[in-house]
Amino acid sequence: MSALLARIVAHRLFWPVVMLVVLLVINLVAFPGFFTISVRDGHLFGSLIDILRNGAPTLIIAVGMTLVIATRGIDLSVGAVAAISGAVACSIILGSPEPGSLATVAVAVTVALVISLVLGVWNGFLVAVIGIQPIIATLILMTAGRGVAMLITEGQILTVNSPPFKFLGSGFWFGVPIAVIIAAVVFGVAALVTRRTALGMFIESVGINPEASRQSGVRARGLLVVVYTFCAFCAAIAGLILTANTAAADANNTGLFIELDAILAVVIGGTSLAGGRYSLLGTLVGALVIQTLVTTVYTVGIPPIATMVFKAAVVTVVCLLQSPTTAEAFSGFRRRLAIRAGKGAAAS
């Protein structure tokens, strides 16, 4: 019994899940109808659905970020890429004679996604081929990217009136929000592709021991380019959802700080910033924790705008828990406990 408990506690997802449960309970106490899900006009409604829907963009980016972080990297440019993809899509839709047609939207979305692939290859090139540290390489696109987005929108907030496009952000399919479905697909594809092909193993292997991987014949360069490209692709999808949700491309504010939320989700999910073993499931939990935190702040009645203070607290706590110093202190404490227990047993 206690062995089972110990195994559960030792599981890497234990603390993230506990965090999530605690947040949900707080919500339930503050707002007893929190778990109610109702069906209105054939659509699912309720706080939990809102959490899923609003958390979708963060989750999508966090999935890409997880793989990047597993290779010992980081991608700071995802917010800017999201802004660019939203701007591209909206400007194409606005420029088209039939903004409401499905074909226009399809073209707009495709072009936006293709551009994100180019941007991702660019990041991957800087990291893998030129050999610039990931944080710095992606800082370049983070800085310039919003400028590019502004350039595309010509400094305006582009409001589009295109039902098919808006559907991406706020539509429903079989009662489920489209954003949630897209997030589920991205998550599923990422999980399937990395685990069903050898990609996942190579990503971890390169993140854990790059030199041993090289000597075993793993091609790290191509791998890094693919991973950064995938991350940018995820960012673009998230950008499209965010833009479609408001039906407006705002180069300044689309995806602002979302890179930080995504990194936070990955870290909460138990993937170490030092690279190596990753957990997409952990990232899912992490993204839900963040979104639930935001919702909790709303329900409890704290000014929603103060969410960032709570996020700061969460980052700090998670980092301190992961810190080697803390681990040392803990193991020292445990050893002392064990010694004391051993003495006690010997005495009795």
């Binding site: 092909t197 292997s205 075993s216 014949g217």
Partner: peptide, 12 residues
Amino acid sequence: LALQADRGWFRP
């Protein structure tokens, strides 16, 4: 690891 690396990514 080495055998897989030799086979490539998509022939797991």
